[in-house]
Nucleic acid binder design. Structure first.
Lengths: 331, 331
DNA sequence: CTGAAAGCGCTTACAG
DNA sequence: CTGAAAGCGCTTACAG
């Protein structure tokens, strides 16, 4: 592998000129530039980025901290991050934490040891997080909730959940159930707040039987929670699930119990994952602008890194209620 | 930020001793170790990995080259890669190529400029690839086909496809259709070969009408291809789809056309993505050991990097035929 | 516009 | 077991 010295010798200039010709061509005469480029070409020289990064004290990479890369929703946000990062010359390091704080800590280490310039955090909660204690590095929260003062990009979960329930109400539903994620999960808390607000505004008393918590946001948990909904004595006519996977699992249980969707019960999800429109029935859901969230979070993070100032932006993007065949008028 | 010199001064030893105490503690006396650790603790010293990597000419990171991270199957393989990488002290750089050769090239640059030590390639075909021309860096193909001489981890696609068709035959089906991916796609080629072999062995003449090519491996393309299957004059009683997304899209079209699955037509997929078991009907499919493929590919790559020898291993893992409710006896 | 030179923070052969 | 010293390949203030 050739280095900058060999290039400078072949080109008959100093290493400084080679460096300038490569990084800041405008600082160098046309003639020098030509000689350097020719030498680079002949030697098939590729700069050693390990040296460059070390010298410039920048890794030009970002860590994505996510509970699971294998989530249909998050993986789309990650694509957005990655696109924006590549456009600005940054690489993306995958930090699949598998919900383990130890693993998360290991990825935060990457920033502390300079292997990454900043973090995009998908986990909505700051509690127990090492990040909560040491926020002296660039970070942006993506897809989070209102509970962070740090820069973030997200939708308004309370309003979006409220929109779903209001839509049910407009169809004449009065007994509306909800399947949340885990009780302490910030998304669950916000979306449940939206559910409650909509019911209150419609003067409908809350029925604790209609509020079910799933163990997590998986289809499997949706199956389990859906079974409980299907077994209710006084059956609801509508069901709001806090993500599409839970909705899909729940519908499976509900159909299996002989309840038709949406004939007997309307079901809505959240996120608008690719599968939503291909399920049977196609799923009414909240569309989050996943790509845009990812790109914006990434650009905000890089701005933060490059200007070395901490912006306190909390960007709230629009969601869309997508109506499909899984919901209909109250029976 | 403190550096190694400050630590050495506080500990009263040389920087060499600090370095050794941190990387090869066994080379250093217990007493020195203690002093160093104490100083590290007091200064909250974190080694500058940018310097360490530069010095040791290693980035300790790998690039994953994938057409899309937002694929339910690949994202699970990626999780496996990431787990194995973290266990061995490597980071994973995301190379979502979006099927663009220009983007793929930019990621290969990372290896050429030392920012990555090797590549895990998911794209099965080598044609048009820069990799095909410059294979002088560590690389492992994951989930590929038989067409590479380079190290790889995969299942036997021909045999797996054959197993699906043989299973259809055992249920009494004789008119068996197939929806492939794009014609030039290596997975399509292999799986179609398996389909053909099974039919030949059963002395069933091939009917070109029953072989349909989808534009890609998406559900949307499955919908389109499924429509063509549903419109066939002499309807098949079984349909093999080359991945689960196509199968899901196809089933949607088929059901919409009034054909019951599996009553009138059995449908099978490939990959066993999470949604397969939650679809309606739950999907018969080929389970690929995604996590194991990812971990093994990663470990093979790191072995290659660290031993600096190119192993020519082609590892072929077992698949499983998972029978669910989307398939049944021929009508 | 250009070059000589210092230096980024480590690691590692070498000598003791 | 330890330290002094060289050096990895760049970048960049400095002087001209």
């Amino acid at each position: 592998m050739s280095n900058i010295r060999e290039v400078s010798q072949l080109a008959g200039v100093s290493t400084a000129t080679v460096s300038r010709a490569l990084r800041n061509p405008e600082l160098v005469s046309k003639e020098s530039r030509r000689k350097v480029m020719e030498a680079v070409e002949r030697l098939n020289y590729r700069p050693n980025m390990l040296a460059r990064n070390f010298r410039s004290e920048r890794s030009y990479s970002l860590v994505i901290l996510t509970p699971s890369i294998a989530s249909p929703f998050y993986s789309r946000v990650i694509r957005g991050v990655e696109l924006a990062a590549q456009n600005r010359g940054y690489s993306v390091l995958l930090g699949d934490t598998r919900d383990s704080l130890r693993r998360e800590d290991e990825y935060i280490e990457l920033v502390e040891t300079r292997l990454a310039d900043g973090i995009i955090q998908f986990r909505p909660s700051e509690s127990n997080s090492r990040i909560a204690r040491r926020t002296n590095f660039p970070i942006v929260y993506a897809c989070g909730c209102a509970d962070t003062a740090l820069p973030s990009v997200r939708i308004d979960n309370i309003e979006a959940a409220r929109a779903v329930v209001n839509y049910f109400l407009s169809l004449g539903h009065r007994r509306i159930a909800v399947i949340c994620g885990p009780p302490e999960n910030p998304h669950s808390i916000d979306r449940l707040a939206g559910y409650r607000r909509a019911l209150q505004d419609a003067d409908i008393a809350e029925d604790p039987d209609l509020i079910v918590h799933a163990d997590d946001y998986s289809m499997q948990s949706g199956v389990k929670a859906g079974t409980r909904i299907a077994e209710l004595h006084d059956s609801p006519t509508a069901l709001f699930c806090m993500n599409d996977e839970i909705a899909i699992g729940a519908i499976q249980s509900i159909k299996r119990a002989g309840i038709s969707v949406p004939g007997d019960m309307s079901v809505a999800g959240f996120d608008n994952i690719d599968f939503a429109r291909h399920y049977d029935p196609p799923l009414t859901t909240i569309d989050q602008p996943s790509d845009e969230i990812g790109q914006m979070a990434c650009n905000m993070l890089i701005d933060q890194i490059e200007e070395r100032g901490v912006s306190q932006n909390n960007v709230i993007l629009d969601y869309d209620l997508i109506v499909r065949a899984s919901t209909g008028p109250a029976p």
